[in-house]
Deep mutational scan, measured.
Amino acid sequence: ENVVSAPMPGKVLRVLVRVGDRVRVGQGLLVLEAMKMENEIPSPRDGVVKRILVKEGEIVDTGQPLIELG
């Protein structure tokens, strides 16, 4: 699984990683606000951040690609 998608609609509050960062399974990639709750979106696997597909403040839909892992 190379693309991390939004599990719910919401607003991207914070991106916690940068392109080139090594991440571990379960590590927070970004914080999504949904229904006034902050939800940290975890990495599904170990890898390297290849691309960040959203910006802070952006509104996303369920299933929208957020981050690509390499």
Rank of each mutant, 00 (worst) to 15 (best):
69 L>W: 15
30 L>C: 01
54 V>C: 01
1 E>I: 00
14 R>S: 08
45 R>F: 15
51 R>M: 15
18 R>C: 01
20 G>F: 01
9 P>M: 14
17 V>N: 11
32 L>C: 00
61 D>C: 01
26 G>C: 01
40 E>P: 05
40 E>S: 07
57 G>D: 08
9 P>G: 03
14 R>M: 12
23 V>R: 05
36 K>W: 07
16 L>Y: 05
43 S>K: 00
5 S>W: 02
28 G>D: 11
57 G>I: 07
47 G>D: 15
54 V>T: 08
2 N>M: 06
40 E>V: 09
54 V>I: 13
30 L>G: 07
29 L>H: 02
12 V>W: 01
62 T>D: 12
25 V>L: 11
37 M>K: 04
15 V>N: 10
36 K>F: 05
26 G>F: 08
29 L>W: 06
31 V>Q: 03
38 E>C: 01
13 L>V: 06
52 I>E: 12
35 M>D: 03
39 N>S: 09
31 V>L: 13
4 V>S: 15
61 D>K: 07
19 V>F: 06
60 V>S: 08
52 I>P: 04
67 I>D: 00
32 L>H: 14
47 G>R: 02
66 L>N: 04
15 V>C: 00
20 G>K: 11
64 Q>M: 11
22 R>S: 12
11 K>Q: 13
4 V>F: 05
7 P>C: 01
6 A>D: 09
50 K>N: 13
2 N>D: 15
41 I>V: 11
40 E>G: 10
68 E>Q: 01
22 R>Y: 02
45 R>A: 15
43 S>N: 05
47 G>M: 03
37 M>G: 05
12 V>T: 05
50 K>E: 14
48 V>Q: 08
29 L>F: 02
22 R>C: 01
21 D>H: 00
46 D>K: 02
25 V>I: 09
6 A>N: 06
46 D>I: 08
57 G>F: 03
18 R>I: 11
57 G>M: 09
68 E>M: 00
4 V>I: 09
53 L>T: 09
68 E>F: 02
43 S>W: 08
61 D>N: 11
10 G>N: 14
22 R>V: 06
22 R>A: 05
17 V>R: 03
28 G>C: 01
32 L>F: 13
59 I>S: 08
20 G>P: 02
2 N>E: 15
26 G>H: 10
67 I>N: 09
11 K>M: 13
62 T>S: 04
